[in-house]
Amino acid sequence: MIREPNALDVLYLIAAGRWTLALTALAFFGGGLMGILVMLLRIAPAAPVRWAAMGWIQAIQGTPLLAQLFVFFFGFAIFGYRVSPWVAAGVAFSIYASAFLAEIWRGCIEAVPRQQWEASAALGLSFPQQLRYVVVPQAFRIAIPPTVGFLVQLVKNTSLASTIGFIELTREGQITTGATFRPFTIYGIVAVLYFCICFPLSQLSQRLERRLHVAR
């Protein structure tokens, strides 16, 4: 039976927003850990290691996230694992985020002037020591604005998890639309909710970036 949308629907949509946030956090955490590893491999002194990392990044950045989601969703099943949408989405989004974060962070590492590397090498620091004590502390500041910017992309892209049955903001919107048949109203509200999450983050990213430019 088709019913009118009411205040409770809005409340349910807001409540579903927390799963969007939870998936974003999971992807950011998993993707961040993997991203650090990929980034380190990407700047490693040994060339074959760098190529492997580059291949990984190319493969992830060159295929649609939707395809990655489906490959992981069905991929677990063929190895005999029956996984929940949580696991499939968490793994797929972490892998997706790892490639992008690795590239962003590599850019930040490379933005640190070459002389800093040379000076620390001249002081007898090893490669890990150079990273740990000289380069990363400087790159960290540069990395914050684009990382926050990527977080916005991540929040928006979690909407694709709805396609594998993960219940978050978009999926809840689809369910509510099914019950009320008011797509314009419901998706409008969903869009506003996404905007409420993303807009402060993008503003923060821009402000941080401006402050960084002033400081330098």
């Binding site: 694709l160 689809q174 797509p183 998706y187 969903v190």
Partner: peptide, 22 residues
Amino acid sequence: EAIRNTPLLIQLFLVFFGLPSA
């Protein structure tokens, strides 16, 4: 700002499912 801070999927749904009611 409106476009960059909302998902493409929702924009697509608004155009395809939402616009007919307008």
